[in-house]
Nucleic acid binder design. Structure first.
Lengths: 341, 341
DNA sequence: CTGAAAGCGCTTACAG
DNA sequence: CTGAAAGCGCTTACAG
């Protein structure tokens, strides 16, 4: 009898084959039982599970990915982590994905087209099971990468009427218009719009502001204060000063993000400008701290956690091949009127 | 002659074997040339690279992971993403890791021992090349998982004299003591410490506060205001009110995190309490907005970005098997004195 | 400095 | 409902 040849590279790891042996079934049956795929005799499933328990078997994701040609993770591309908006979104996505057995890989684009394209390339080479991206604006190469990859993709934060795309979000333009109409209803007539970063969603809010003013016969293009620099409290404070200096008749300012508006409120305190007496101030997103400001900040509450949850569920459905209910979900927004307007 | 048997499961993907064929070398030489491993004839390397370019070859991480028994990613465990501290840390880690070819997988523990253990289990089953964890406090099972995994691990945010462990951070206790001494030097005598969350690092700052007071003969255990709830602006405001109500003689409050202190400053404005006239206020971490507050907030600047950078480099060295310079790096902290104290 | 062979631990596709 | 065979695309360990 031949001596059994020694295995050359054994890792000592407990494998699916070990489970199969102790359960007295074939490896493929173990594989199917574990993934809940197709029908497997309940009794065999029980035996497999017992063996898994007894041996402490843990599947190897790399082997699984190699054999099945896609990983057990999803990639999420967001612009920043320093905006609490995206942190809330991410946490919600992870909360759905982890129990479903998917890891979440985060890519931060810094609002940069080229970084996003590069990131997409890297992520896609890891063969994610699914993809979540922010909005619809990206360069042609990035679009092509997504399309050609065949990886299911959900777009978040915006909505689109385009058929075939999957998205979860709300109308940024409508939300911007609604906030502007609120200011008009409060009797404001010279309403400025102050924005930083100038990403697509900010510009959509800008459009909403324009439309609402136009509808009321109050249009004032000179009151759009646009700065491509990153959003921050300090910048908001500076914008507040500049706008009041340049346009003393302004009686309301709509900031495209709460951090700018918070900075403006702080600057108003510093400068002794009465809010809302002299000028009303409003923000967007209802970030943490806005309800604590003095005066408390009027803003638009955006459903980012719900967006994350729904986007994850939609992606899971796409991954499983069960078509999700509807291609595009509009989760709306909520006007939060506080003392600053 | 036999008909060449058709390949059964070809994916159409360009593989290392394809590159080898067009470069006219063996697959293993391609593998070595691409990874820059050992010596390979420069001319062959050039031929391989040309073939890679021509074919648009992209290595498959799953196959690589399966063959080499560890992934091309590192896992990072942090408590929260809603504290800007950890966002800065993460961004710095990613900035080092991506160019080195490693993806960063983020796990959020929510300051929960069991969640951390579970997360560790999941992450480790994905065989990361390296691991970064926050601090040293975790349950025995989590410790054992890290040790037994054999995965190189760097601890961040704290320092430890223990030999054999790798860490990058600073002394939280020293920083807490330094801030307290500053308040004492400013003539404050009844100095309260207000903390939320009560995670290990917060409690280390508490110790620093105690030591500094004791050294000055000012100890006042009744002035430690500890709340296990998550840190927030609103909670800081409430704590501010409570402390002044319960201890009217308090003349300074040291909040364990800037968000609490910012909330306190806002509450002071609301209540008409003079800061620093009636009571000095200080925070910790120098988070965004602290310099914009009214008055601007005295705090301790913590080097989280530098911690991320150094931790990533240390981990890279451990992964490559080159022992890093020193097991533990203390990056210190910086007192930032502003108008609130 | 280079290579032929074997293997990493799973799943797919084909049968029955 | 179950299985034997082949293969996913790399790297390790052994030679030379």
């Amino acid at each position: 009898m031949n001596e059994p040849r020694e295995r050359r590279r054994s890792t000592g790891r407990i494998t699916l084959a070990d489970v199969a042996r102790t359960a007295g079934v074939s490896p493929i049956t173990v594989s199917r039982a574990l993934r809940g795929e197709r029908a497997v005799d309940p009794e065999l499933v029980a035996r497999v599970q017992a063996a898994v328990q007894a041996l402490g078997y843990v599947p190897d994701p790399a082997a699984r990915a190699l054999a099945s040609r896609h990983g057990s993770h999803v990639a999420v591309l967001i612009p920043l982590l320093s905006n609490a908006l995206f942190v809330d979104l991410l946490e919600a996505v992870q909360r759905e994905m982890r129990p479903a057995g998917y890891q979440t890989l985060i890519g931060i684009t810094h609002y940069d087209e080229n970084e996003e394209e590069q990131l997409l390339r890297e992520q896609l080479m890891h063969r994610p099971a699914g993809l979540i991206v922010t909005g619809f604006d990206r360069n042609a190469a990035a679009h092509a990468l997504i399309d050609r990859s065949g990886v299911p993709c959900v777009h978040v934060m915006e909505t689109s009427p385009q058929p075939g795309v999957h998205c979860v979000g709300f109308s940024q333009a409508d939300a911007g218009a609604a906030l502007t109409r609120h200011l008009i209803a409060r009797g404001r007539r010279r309403i400025a719009f102050a924005a930083a970063q100038l990403d697509p969603r900010t510009l959509q809010r800008l459009q909403g502001w324009q439309q609402a003013l136009q509808a009321a016969g109050l249009q004032a293009p000179e009151l759009a204060c646009l700065d491509p620099a990153p959003s921050s409290l300090a910048l908001g404070g500076r914008m507040f000063e500049q706008i009041l200096a340049a346009h003393p008749d302004v009686d309301a300012i709509f900031f495209c993000n709460d951090d700018l508006a918070q900075g403006a409120l702080l600057a108003a305190l510093r400068l002794g400008v009465a809010v809302p007496g002299r000028v009303a101030v409003a923000g967007f997103n209802d970030l943490t701290g806005s309800d604590q400001m003095l005066p408390a900040l009027t803003t638009v509450r955006t459903p980012r956690a719900a967006i994350g949850t729904h986007a994850a569920r939609m992606l899971l459905a796409l991954i499983r091949g069960t078509p999700p209910a509807g291609g595009c979900i509009d989760l709306g927004y909520e006007l939060v009127v506080r003392a600053s307007s």
